[in-house]
Write a protein that binds this DNA or RNA. Structure first.
Length: 650
DNA sequence: GAGTTTGAAACT
DNA sequence: CAGTTTCAAACTC
């Protein structure tokens, strides 16, 4: 089973799983989060090549070691890290490493038992585990699948079980005690919440399968929103972080809003549906079938919830039988764990410094690809143009249903303000649009309708683009962060994060990044001869001139529009009388050109009045007089035309 | 539109 | 980190 390109995985932004904000969260809150965490349809997990995840048959367990790096684990993940080694079955195998996509790894080997429907998450030592180890002795995580339910039970502080709803397995793994549950299929959750609080916490403890009324309603609500998938990423409790993602559509495109980032992410996941790929037991017979979706309630393992059509398995680049990827899935569900067959990347960029769109789509020659992360702007582009590259190279289809969303405030600046402006096309010729010289690239955008030559800033050159992003980040981890941020605490003004270095422009031309951003230079600027400060007379003059020019343009535009509207309205309502014939003129004589010419005349008259400093009353009189002349000419022309027309019997 | 100026980014 | 080169945008004519 093809899964996630490791290189691409490695570039996934931390924000997707950034739960630092949750680190300080009370345990109970963390629990609330955990209960809402992922599990939706699929949970994406990648594995290292050396220790492949083992295919889980009905009788076998799949031990998975989730390694944890220094990044604090979020909620569930964190709790996983604190769990003690647990062995639930005798035939468990250990040692398989499953990383969570490069950016976050859990160090908790856990065992998945399809036979008894348990996933046992074992703790391994990790950097963070030290502190957690104190409570480890009393805490462990068991993800237990009871028929349709996947129970994540935390035995520790709260002891609250977390039930992750899963569809019935349908396989022979169904044990007696859960057979009843199988008949009453519970719906799948489609709400994925990572980092955000969710009230969706249907607790179905091991001793009770009852849900409160509220929980039932919540669950129902979730069912009702099935057509879309709501993904909350990062942050705590903000619905602002939610993204509505169309579900069950062909494109397999998920849009993810990363808080604090200007980027929207679209994750494209190619995976198999359970029904088409499930291998209840026995050896695999072909490469495609080898990839077995496996339901793993990985919780916060990764904010990757593939939405996969049934046919997509055929579109995935098949892996040979020797592949290490193992995807096991229960039937009749789209929930699965997707583990990569490819090695995890060695590079671990700082994901807090988000690259300008990390595309994990199968770029030509890029090898296995599981999903794509693209900048928000490209989401919009996707709406407008066919997703040709993806569609052609991976079988993905263009999505016309991807929803853009309101953007989050960025550094105190309305993103609407900062991003809604029409982007200027770049004109790069030598940089291939893969260096920060290119505004598109620097802004995390794909080139679109640009005038650049030899452009690599597109999905077709994703490999190169990713490399360039990494290079930039290596050079400057903050390369893709906005340059205009907020000033020091207490300062309301924005300021350039690095300051400018102007020498000749006096910081009063657009060469200066501060001036261009309409902010004043600050103490961190190294400019020479700066005139871009509050009291600068040159700056004030410039500002006044600019303001005056802008006002004039606005006034002229408004006046033109108003006049045009009034004339149009007047001419439409009053059907002029033809002086010669007495008949009525058809409206067709009042063409757009006639209207525009009339407006021009009136504006010219107004301008002349202004130049000669005439009083307003006089100016108005002149304009009205001009308007009368215009009308007369129109009527005259119309009458003449009608006579001419009649004479030729038209 | 061509040529020049400018300063950020990239390179050494 | 400093000096130099490269680059593309801003600007001028």
């Amino acid at each position: 089973m093809d899964v996630v390109s490791p290189e691409l995985n490695s570039l996934l932004p931390d924000e997707i799983m950034d739960t630092e904000a949750m680190e300080d969260m009370p345990h109970s809150q963390a629990h609330a989060l955990s209960s809402g965490v992922t599990l939706a349809e699929e949970t994406l997990i990648t594995s290292t090549p050396k220790e492949p995840a083992l295919c889980s048959s009905a009788e076998n367990q799949v031990p998975l070691s989730i390694s944890n790096k220094s990044t604090p684990l979020p909620t569930l993940k964190r709790s996983l890290a604190t769990s003690t080694a647990t062995t639930k079955t005798t035939d468990s195998v250990t040692g398989t490493t499953v990383s969570t996509g490069g950016m976050q790894k859990l160090s908790s080997p856990f065992t998945i038992s399809a036979a008894n429907h348990q996933i046992i998450l074992n703790k391994v030592a990790s950097a963070q585990a030290g502190e957690a180890a104190k409570s480890a002795a009393t805490s462990h995580q068991v993800i237990k699948q009871e028929g349709q339910k996947l129970l994540v039970r935390t035995i520790g502080k709260s002891g609250q079980p977390i039930v992750l709803q899963l569809p019935p397995t349908g396989s022979k793994a169904a044990v007696g005690q859960t057979s009843g549950d199988l008949k009453t299929q519970t719906p799948q959750f489609k709400v994925v919440t990572i980092g955000g609080r969710t009230e969706l916490k249907p607790l179905v403890g091991g001793t009770t399968n009852q849900m409160t009324t509220l929980q039932a309603q919540q669950l129902k609500t979730v069912q009702n929103i099935k057509p879309v998938q709501s993904v909350a990423v990062g942050g705590v409790g903000g619905s602002q972080f939610k993204t509505i993602i169309p579900l069950a559509t062909q494109p397999n495109v998920q849009q993810i809003q990363v808080p604090g980032s200007r980027f929207h992410y679209v994750r494209l996941v190619t995976a198999t549906t359970a029904s088409s790929t499930v291998q209840p037991s026995g050896p695999s017979t072909n490469s495609v079938q080898t990839a077995k979706p496996m339901i793993v309630s990985a919780g916060a393992v990764r904010m990757s919830v593939p939405i996969v059509p049934a046919q997509s398995v055929k579109q995935v680049a098949p892996k040979p039988l020797t592949t290490t990827a193992q995807v096991v899935s229960t039937p009749q569900t789209q929930q699965r764990l997707i583990m990569p067959a490819t090695p995890l990347p060695q590079i671990q960029p700082n994901f807090t410094n988000l690259p300008p769109g990390t595309v994990l789509a199968p770029a030509p020659g890029a090898g296995n690809v599981g999903y794509a992360v693209v900048p928000a702007q490209y989401v919009t582009q996707l709406q407008q143009t066919p997703f040709v590259t993806l569609a052609s190279s991976s079988g993905f289809q263009a999505s016309s249903s991807i929803q853009t969303q309101a953007r989050l405030p960025l550094n105190g600046v309305s993103t609407t303000e900062s991003t809604s402006r029409p982007r200027k096309p770049c004109n790069c010729t030598k940089s291939q649009c893969l260096k920060l010289y290119c505004d598109c690239f620097a802004n995390g955008e794909f080139c679109n309708n640009c005038n650049c030559n030899n452009c690599f800033n597109n999905l077709e050159h994703e490999t190169e683009r990713l490399k360039a992003i990494k290079t930039c980040l290596d050079r400057n981890p903050e390369a893709f962060k906005p340059k205009i941020g907020k000033g020091k605490e207490g300062e309301s003004d924005r300021r350039h994060s690095k300051g400018c270095n102007c020498k000749r422009s006096g910081c009063l031309k657009n060469y200066c990044e501060c001036y261009e951003a309409k902010i004043m230079c600050s103490s961190i600027c190294k400019c020479i001869g700066c005139k871009n400060f509050e009291e600068s007379p040159e700056r004030k003059t410039l500002m006044h001139l600019a303001d005056a020019a802008e006002v004039r343009v606005q006034q002229q535009t408004a006046a033109k529009t108003k006049l045009s509207s009034q004339i149009s309205d007047l001419l439409m309502r009053t059907t002029p009388v033809i002086p010669t014939g007495g008949g009525r003129l058809p409206y067709t004589f009042v063409t757009k050109e006639v209207l525009e010419a009339t407006c021009e005349c009136l504006l010219e008259r107004a301008k002349r009045s202004e130049q000669t400093h005439q009083p307003q009353a006089e100016a108005e009189r002149m304009i009205l007089e001009e308007f009368g002349h215009c009308l007369m000419r129109i009527i005259s022309s119309a009458g003449k035309a009608k006579v001419d027309c009649a004479s030729i019997n038209c």
